[in-house]
């Protein structure tokens, strides 16, 4: 659905995007993570044919950036960093104008459908300038979907929203994902990426890595199991370390953190050994690193390399 090969953008002496090679599959929610100035917005602008790449190629929906720009703009929807609505005009007028520019067949029908879907129908005649930030963001999402695009680019969709509005937007993103659309989601909100994205890519001028959030955690930290004991006896860490499949054992207060490849199969063996050694096992769980840990670690690596 989205395919880039060595996509590069240079502004003067500064390389904003460096040889980005990436594939985003149909129906996938792809999270595009990276610090400010990492080249996320520049990438989105290239993929939506707003700016031309300096080098490399990109194909969206089978159309090539730089050659089929109008076709690309017709087939993608974009939510820009700031909603950018005409504040003096009503919500309905705003959407009607964009529906006409996107050559939508049934303009009034599509406008009504999306205003109702996002709970803005009752306020359709109000000037957008009187809307809250969350309402403007919802209206901008409506605008991005009016022409029913197969690919939707969302640049920081929940940025600056209060928790309730942010949740509404996230729920709506999940809904449009369920409709089978491909979503390219730029975000700083790693919790959001964790919840919504099938895969994430971490960007810092160049693409540092791409994988599922779970695989990224494992790639960086492996899998760790926490054994909560009533008390950690003196020989217990060594006992666990004696198993060939145990990678590492770390004691933190009354917990033993054990690195394993296959906890489903290996946990029962270790629990049995601990019980036989007289330990009181209170409970066992997998240690989950947040996507934030993974992200920060990758960015730090990317900076030092």
């Amino acid at each position: 659905m989205i395919q880039t090969t060595n996509l590069t953008k240079v502004f003067g002496a500064r390389t904003a995007v460096d040889a980005l090679t990436l594939t985003v599959h149909e129906g996938e929610v792809f999270g595009f993570l990276g610090p400010n100035g990492a080249g996320k917005t520049t990438t989105v602008r290239m993929l939506t044919s707003l700016i031309a790449p300096t080098a490399g190629t990109a194909r969206i929906n089978g159309f090539e950036v730089g050659r089929d720009d109008t076709a690309i703009r017709r087939s993608v929807g974009i939510l820009t960093e700031t909603p950018g609505m005409y504040d003096q005009l009503s919500a309905q007028k705003n959407l009607t104008l964009f529906a006409r520019l996107y050559e939508v067949g049934d303009v009034p029908g599509q406008v009504e459908k999306y205003l109702r879907l996002l709970g803005l129908w009752e306020r359709r005649n109000d000037a957008v300038g009187s809307f809250s930030k969350g309402m403007k963001q919802k209206l901008a999402i409506c605008r991005a979907l009016l022409h029913e695009p197969a690919v939707v680019f969302l640049d920081e969709p929940t940025s600056g929203l209060d928790p309730e509005a942010a949740r509404l937007v996230r729920e709506f993103v999940a809904e449009i994902k369920a409709q089978g659309r491909t979503i390219f989601l730029c975000t700083h909100n790693l919790d959001e990426a964790d919840r919504l994205c099938d895969r994430v890519g971490v960007m810092q001028q160049r693409l540092l890595t791409v994988d599922t959030p779970t695989a990224l955690r494992r790639q960086l930290y492996g899998r760790k199991v926490v054994f909560h004991l009533r008390e950690v006896g003196a020989g217990l860490p060594a006992l666990l370390q004696s198993f060939p499949f145990v990678k590492e054992v770390e004691q933190v207060e009354n917990k033993l953190l054990v690195g394993l490849d296959d906890p489903d199969a290996q946990n029962p063996v270790l629990v049995r050994a601990l019980v036989q050694a007289g330990a009181d096992v209170q409970f066992v769980g997998e240690l989950r690193h947040s996507l934030e840990d993974v992200y920060l670690s990758l960015i730090q690596r990317g900076t030092t390399e």
Binding site: L50, T70, I78, P83, G84, M85, Y86, Y102
Partner: peptide
């Protein structure tokens, strides 16, 4: 100034 230019240019208008 209203930041409307980017969404406008993202439409298939020449």
């Amino acid at each position: 100034t209203t930041r409307c230019l980017e969404p406008l240019l993202a439409t298939p208008i020449s």
